[in-house]
Design a protein around this nucleic acid. Structure first.
Lengths: 151, 151
DNA sequence: GAAAATCGTTCATACTCTGAATGGTATTGT
DNA sequence: ACAATACCATTCAGAGTATGAACGATTTTC
């Protein structure tokens, strides 16, 4: 039986898997550099984005949503707390839980990170016209939504 | 002075920087899993893709093009050689150079990796219709080309 | 022909992340 | 009521990946 919907690429650089891998790695390196002055890494921003989107959350929820080990969330939260970006309080109803929430300083940092990302975007999307840029963002949004990533 | 071409996102998940970071990490994890049966990692495939596109090359050229340390290329080449995927011969004209070239087995592995990537693509692009899928691939290709990545 | 540069390799190290062990807290079963 | 079990956060040891410095071999420069 023939393939009625053949969308296969004929070489690896033409696949989404390869393109997302290479572009993703490059963009992440640039983002890391852009965040360095804020003393943040992408995963710290990831935590703050979650808190910003869904409100206060226990560390385990964050670990599950981000797909990382709970022990990693400990060190991410340690650092964010040291920066004054989050508050860490024991849940009165369940004192095993450490509930994280964004502080004013955290919101400031998040705004700074957003500004850095927007500057980076301007560079990245340089070769794209306005319409293409919007289309790209829309398509990435669809994939992110489908994958359960923040969007 | 007002911004005449305001394309700034208003939240981080809406930026290209964030989207490429999260999607790139997710896709890379899936790709790593898909390559595991072949005993390859994305960087091994990266080396093979370079050899396939530009022909035989010295290790240092590969390091520069891939943006990694020369010492890393040593271990990548070691592994590829062990798999029989590449040949490593001293350049007769400049005996400091180790020239890498794909073997028949290497081309087979590359084809297997391509098949794995295409299967992954089918999953990834599931929620996209044919037109969107083509458009996404085109836009990613533009960015990859602009960034000097394989395309 | 000596000095400097280049290529590949090894090795020590940094970094990120995970999984197992632990202590404290909550829930379940009897 | 209370023992057994399950759960959350934390610490810690260790795996995996990458870099950069040091070295030997070779080539280029002066």
């Amino acid at each position: 039986m023939l393939n009625v919907n053949d969308v296969n690429a004929t070489s690896l650089p033409g696949t989404l898997a390869f393109r997302f891998g290479t572009l993703g790695a490059m963009v992440t390196d640039l983002f890391v550099a852009a965040l360095a002055p804020l003393d943040l890494k992408p995963k710290h921003v990831g935590v703050m984005v979650m808190l910003d989107l869904h409100g206060p959350a226990a560390q385990l929820e964050i670990a599950r949503t981000m797909g990382v080990a709970p022990s990693l969330v400990v060190s991410l939260a340690d650092h964010l707390e040291k920066l004054g970006a989050i508050q860490r309080v024991r849940d009165a109803g369940d004192r095993r839980r450490q509930v994280l929430s964004l502080t004013g300083k955290g919101r400031e940092l998040l705004a700074d990170a957003l500004a850095a990302a927007n500057r980076l975007d301007a560079d990245l999307a340089g070769p794209l016209n306005e319409k293409d840029r919007k289309e790209l963002n829309r398509l990435l949004g669809v994939l992110a939504a489908e994958a359960g990533l923040p969007h």
